[in-house]
Design a binder for these strands. Structure first.
Length: 618
DNA sequence: ATCGGAAGGACCC
DNA sequence: TTCCAGGGTCCTTCCATC
């Protein structure tokens, strides 16, 4: 029977070390075979194997001399990298253990003793360690997971819950590095260098915490990095009852690798010594490296590269066949180099929504869905006061073939009409033109080329936690935001501005009302109501789930904004003061909480392209 | 040579 | 019996244009 390695268990995650991989892979293949998804994965793998063949034959054409020369060139490059190596800083990567699953197990302790996963039947987000023993893990469809583990309990995701815990964690981390960067809800990087310098001047009380939440017993942490991180993890546990793992090293790539070493509920510090670093990294399997996924691993493995040290051994060939950016990335990896500055995204690059459904070819249904997705996306644009200039339609056929169609608009807009028209035109074009088009199983709408509305300049600064580069970006933007709105043939959005302001006020009022009333009656007439306590403001909520969630979102935003303002209060630079004043007046405007988490990109792009992601054709 | 639009793909959480 | 998400980012290629 044919197989595809693309379906095999990803055993690179913690808790998956002692599995019978053969058996699990066989079960997965068995459960998947004949499915359209399986066939698509096979096609993908075959296509990649073809590309690999081409590469291998290219390699055969190189002379030994050529390879030797390339190796020397690679060595020179590695020497260069050595010279720029910065061992002076100490980064910490914090990673919550099986975060969503841990939150659910805390809420419902019965789940602690059974294999359990969080997610939908369609796809799992994460699993607890018991479930991992069966090979059940994130990004696995529910039905496969049940094949592997018939007793698996699947609980639905509740992001509002996770966000509350996440913000508690981030708050703690921010006390050690106010410029920390979060990456998703469950991960963060902090540069502890400055804190460690100041730490010796801290009093013992400042390093002392209760041993347990309500206990009088105390525990005092020392001043080393190791003890500092123990303190952070202890405080995280006190605040959330969830364990975290951590890694410390001189750069972020290494710190991230280290947090995996003693997971769960452990930490590992890598000495900032070149030999120790090289020794640490050399035996790691390439899949452990962030940025090397299934496809890249397949390509590298075809060159007999399994470990990071193999990358070094094959540096000559890699120099000859890889793109410079890929080669650069690989050299940095095998040299143990990584970023030593935490960068924050100033502004999101795109916003979109997509949804999967039972395959259909019904144009009316598809168009109506498309309209809904456009509405959802535009709503977000408007409530965040963002304009876009490009719209993209994404569709996936029942054969799992994905195609995207996009169109650049003649000007920046947040007009529902313009955007909906454009994306429906794209969709109709596909439906009309390709009569062979199989039924669809997914549709998505995304807008990109984003700009803040000019009047929201302070908000933009407000959302970038620390705006070192922000200022120039904003100035560039402000010049041309307003003017180019109406050099356009689409003139059907008069009055949009008014609606927008109205909506704005209503959000503002809702927030004020919510926070001022003791008992919040979100819904009165609906029979489908329930009561619960808001995890942020601790008030009783009455209403259906949607409305309760909405309240929590609003409340959470308020909380985050207040926290941020407090943080800014403590800083005293003139620029911050300016921001603070503006922010206070705008602070009731509450964009979705999720935008807050997107301020950091763990693989920061550098202008010279160094350390960027690299792509398929390697 | 260069720019930017459009399409596709890899990868991450 | 069924049967693999949704939010993103970045990169490359192709093609048209200057």
């Amino acid at each position: 029977m044919s197989r595809t390695t693309f379906l095999n268990v990803d055993d690179t995650k913690a808790g998956m070390e002692d599995l019978d991989k053969e058996k699990i892979n066989k079960l997965i293949q068995e459960a998947s075979k004949n499915s359209k998804f399986f066939k698509q994965q096979q096609r993908r793998e075959e296509e990649n194997r073809r590309r690999i063949e081409v590469k291998l034959s290219k390699i055969k054409s190189f002379s030994t001399f050529q390879i030797e020369q390339a190796e020397k060139s690679a060595d020179r490059y590695l020497n260069q990298l050595d010279k720029t190596r910065d061992l002076s800083r100490i980064f910490c990567h914090i990673d919550m253990d099986a975060f969503y699953a841990s939150v659910e197990m805390r809420e419902n302790p019965a789940l602690q003793h059974v294999p359990m996963a969080v997610g939908g039947e369609g796809m799992l987000s994460t699993s607890n360690y018991l479930a991992r023993q069966f090979g059940v893990r994130a990004a696995m469809p529910g039905f496969i997971a049940r094949h592997l583990c018939p007793n698996l309990v699947i609980v639905p995701c509740d992001f509002n819950k996770y966000r509350v815990d996440s913000s508690k964690v981030m708050k703690i981390i921010s006390e050690y590095d106010e410029n920390y960067g979060s990456c998703g809800l469950d991960e963060a990087f902090a540069d502890l260098t400055n804190h460690l310098q100041k730490r010796s001047t801290l009093s013992e009380e400042q390093r002392t915490f209760p041993k347990e939440e309500n206990s009088t017993e105390i525990i005092t942490f020392g001043i080393t990095a190791e003890e500092t991180v123990q303190e952070i993890r202890h405080r995280i546990y006190l605040a959330t009852r969830i364990t975290a793992s951590a890694g410390m090293a001189c750069n972020m790539r290494l710190a991230k690798l280290c947090s995996d070493i003693n997971k769960p509920n452990g930490q590992y510090q890598l000495e900032s010594n070149v030999n120790v670093i090289l020794n640490f990294i050399r035996n790691l399997p390439i899949r452990k490296i962030k940025g090397i996924g299934k496809v890249t691993a397949l390509h590298l493995e075809s060159l007999q590269i399994q470990t990071v040290n193999d990358i070094y051994l094959k540096r000559g060939i890699l120099k000859l066949i890889e793109y410079p950016s890929t080669f650069d990335f690989l050299m940095r990896v095998c040299n143990g180099c990584g970023s030593t500055t935490i960068e924050h995204d100033d502004l999101q690059k795109s916003i979109g929504h997509e949804t999967t459904f039972n395959g259909t070819s019904d144009s009316l249904q598809l168009i109506s869905l498309c309209r809904d997705l456009a509405k959802k996306t535009v709503d977000e644009l408007i409530s965040d006061r963002i304009l876009c200039k490009r719209v993209t339609l994404k569709i996936k056929t029942v054969n799992f073939e994905i195609l995207t169609r996009s169109k650049t608009l003649s000007s920046y807009t947040d007009s529902l009409n313009i955007i909906t028209d454009k994306v429906i035109t794209l969709l109709k074009h596909e439906l009309d033109q390709d009569l062979e088009l199989p039924a669809l199983r997914l549709m998505g709408v995304r807008v990109s080329d984003l700009k803040m509305k000019s009047s929201d300049l302070p908000i933009l600064q407000f959302f970038s936690k620390k705006s070192t580069t922000t200022t120039t970006t904003i100035n560039e933007n402000t010049h041309d935001i307003i003017e180019d709105i109406d050099d356009d043939d689409d003139d059907d959005d008069e009055g949009e501005e008014e609606n927008l302001n109205e909506e704005f006020l209503s959000i503002e009022n809702q927030y004020n009302e919510d926070c001022n009333s003791k008992l919040i009656h979100i819904d009165d007439e609906n029979s489908n109501t329930s009561t619960t306590t808001c995890p942020v403001c601790q008030k009783m909520l009455l209403g259906d789930n949607d409305k309760i969630n909405k309240h929590i979102d609003l409340c959470l935003n308020g909380e985050m904004i207040r926290t941020t303002i407090k943080e800014q209060d403590q800083q005293t630079s003139p620029q911050t003061n300016y921001n603070k004043r503006i922010n206070l007046t705008q602070s009731k405007v509450t964009p979705p909480a999720k935008r807050q988490k997107r301020k950091f990109n763990t693989t920061p792009q550098q202008t010279n392209g160094i350390d960027n992601y690299f792509s398929k054709h390697i």
